[in-house]
Amino acid sequence: MGIAPYAPNADDWFENQEIGVTHVTPSRTVTEADINLFGGITGDLAELHTSDAYARTTEFGGRIAHGMLNLSLMHGLVVRAGHQGSTGIAMLGWNNIKFHAPVKVGDTVQARWTTIEKRDSRSRPDAGIVVDRIELLNHDGRLIVSGEVTELVRKRPG
């Protein structure tokens, strides 16, 4: 249907989720601090993420961000755009996660998402289930991470 920047609003109810519409988020530049903090928080201090000398000897030619950091950045950018910020109830799961390319210090990334499925919740009459296909791209448009996220979203009251 087309690509549009996402305009955050409080009217992001289940009923308003349109299948096939793609939105893009603001962008963000990945810093050395991001990689160091993520490693410290998670305990993933692999040399590929922490040692310039080691990382230069790999096929990447330098330090890269953790794959899980990239997944987190992708989700965070969608949240930053306001998607389901006031109507989301719970994240139910991620499926078909693929890591396509690395992110290096200084790369700028942006996410885009497309609603691909929605249905009423069987257990929550006040909510529905929405599945979004989400992708993280770098400043050159290269696909970094892709996957699908399933979320429980509030229906419009009344």
Rank of each mutant, 00 (worst) to 15 (best):
M1D: 11
G2M: 12
A4N: 12
Y6R: 07
A7E: 12
D11K: 13
D11W: 07
D12L: 08
N16F: 06
N16D: 04
Q17S: 02
E18R: 05
G20I: 04
V21D: 00
H23R: 15
H23V: 03
V24D: 02
T25N: 08
P26N: 13
S27E: 14
S27A: 15
R28V: 07
V30I: 15
V30W: 09
V30R: 12
T31E: 13
E32G: 11
I35F: 13
I35T: 08
N36A: 14
N36C: 07
I41Y: 06
T42A: 13
L45T: 15
E47G: 03
L48Q: 11
L48R: 12
H49I: 07
T50R: 14
S51W: 11
S51I: 05
D52H: 14
T58N: 11
E59W: 02
E59R: 15
G62E: 13
R63S: 09
I64K: 14
A65W: 12
H66E: 11
H66T: 12
L69V: 13
N70R: 06
S72Y: 08
H75V: 15
G76N: 10
L77K: 03
V79D: 09
V79A: 15
V79F: 10
R80M: 10
A81I: 09
A81W: 05
G82A: 06
H83R: 15
G85S: 12
S86W: 00
S86H: 06
I89G: 07
A90V: 02
M91Q: 10
L92N: 10
W94K: 04
N95I: 00
N96H: 12
N96A: 10
N96E: 14
F99N: 02
F99R: 00
F99D: 04
A101N: 08
P102S: 11
V103W: 01
V105M: 06
V109T: 01
A111C: 06
A111I: 01
R112V: 00
W113Q: 09
W113Y: 11
I116M: 04
I116Q: 07
E117Y: 08
K118V: 03
R122D: 01
A127C: 14
A127D: 01
I129V: 14
I129D: 10
V131Q: 01
V131E: 02
I134A: 12
E135K: 00
E135A: 07
L137C: 04
N138I: 01
N138D: 15
N138L: 07
H139P: 00
D140I: 03
R142G: 02
G147D: 04
E148S: 05
V149N: 09
V149R: 03
V149I: 14
T150F: 01
E151N: 10
E151Y: 01
L152A: 05
L152K: 03
L152T: 03
V153L: 04
K155G: 03
K155Q: 02
R156P: 00
R156L: 13
R156T: 02
R156M: 12
G158Y: 04
G158N: 14
